[in-house]
Write a protein that binds this DNA or RNA. Structure first.
Lengths: 195, 195
DNA sequence: CTATGACTAGACTAAATAGTCTAATATGAA
DNA sequence: TTCATATTAGACTATTTAGTCTAGTCATAG
């Protein structure tokens, strides 16, 4: 078993800790202890706590988000089915269902008070929304959805609503509840379907 | 201008600070400084920071939430119109639109790691959901909605979706966006309307 | 091999933090 | 007024925090 490079190990542990506890409740020492990395190593690789977490967001969090939202439709599959499949995949991810979306939770904690985090997280949120918009637009172009569908607004609604449902307290979350609730979003989208 | 009792002043300032910065990023000293209250007074009224914020949640946050969701229908008004009016009222509240729902944001920050906060906040969330459920049920009883409407699931969906739309980054929030997005929830509800 | 730069190691520091303590003062009941 | 209690006042403490520093080790290019 090859030893993982220090920087990568730090990013992995930082993701885990910040996901569960949030940015402010996560201490550098806790990360270092869990990662088994001495302080000097961390401050060699990163300027400080904030730099570490910003790097984690870009190198761990964003790729994870991209894994879920592929923004592409499988051959022979409709946009609607593609979005439905994404929601199903999300519902099967225990961590997501239990602890919510790590991007959204960080945004809720930090966007109001930290410009740099807000810039980074909001940009990704916008990119994801735009991805869904494109998907819906392609569905419009292919005749799957009627022109009356406001693709950009619906994409924002879908993203925010899913985040809202996902990120409630773990004690109120379950895979079944997520599926049932997010189904209303799909049902609404179906309203704009032609075939 | 009569001087506000210390305890009340502390609760007011604590709400403001925790709403914007969150629990962990708010220091006791910051609250005391802003409130102009010495430390001894605070620790006379509250056992500690956590007790102070728990009291704030019950005595300031919860009442504010109840102001928005009245769970009652005005004479001669439909349940649907009542919910629509609530969303309109929310959309006109600049703080809510900008900084999101204070209950939800606190839940996102703390519910995963703090049992006491989770118990308190989740109970209120459930109570609010149950309030909407009752409203929808009364609509069913009066023939406004068809029986196929799963009142409890729709209530949860509505609450969580609104929270999700409301609590995104301030840089992505606006009254107009909130209204347009939350309109999809109403549109879905309309699907179950009879008259 | 050896010199250089990358990385590790962890003791140490300065600041912020929540919380304590004791004395002073206000308030209200007898 | 007087006494007991509630409240104010803020200096002080213990702990945790992020971050610094210097000495050491490791890898590798020459």
């Amino acid at each position: 078993m090859k030893k993982q490079p220090t920087r990568e190990k730090l990013l992995d542990i930082t993701f885990e800790e910040v996901y569960i506890h949030g940015y402010n409740a996560t201490s550098v020492d806790a990360i270092l202890k869990k990662a088994g990395v001495p302080k000097g190593s961390m401050y060699h690789h990163f300027k400080g706590k904030k730099e570490l977490v910003l790097a984690m967001v870009q190198e761990r969090l964003f790729p994870k988000m991209d894994m879920f939202f592929k923004y592409e439709v499988k051959e022979g599959s409709s946009v609607y089915d593609s979005l439905k499949f994404t929601l199903l995949t999300v519902s099967r991810n225990k961590m997501l269902v239990t602890y919510g979306c790590p991007l959204y939770r960080l945004m809720v904690e930090l966007s109001a008070t930290d410009k740099e985090f807000d810039a980074l997280l909001s940009t990704k949120a916008t990119q994801m929304k735009d991805g869904i918009t494109s998907l819906l637009q392609s569905g419009q172009a292919s005749g799957e959805f009627i022109d009356a569908l406001d693709t950009d607004t619906f994409a924002a609604y879908m993203l925010n609503a899913v985040w809202g449902i996902l990120s409630v307290s773990p004690s109120l979350s379950s895979s079944k509840q997520f599926l049932k609730q997010s189904n209303y979003i799909l049902k609404e989208l179906k309203t704009y379907k032609l075939d």
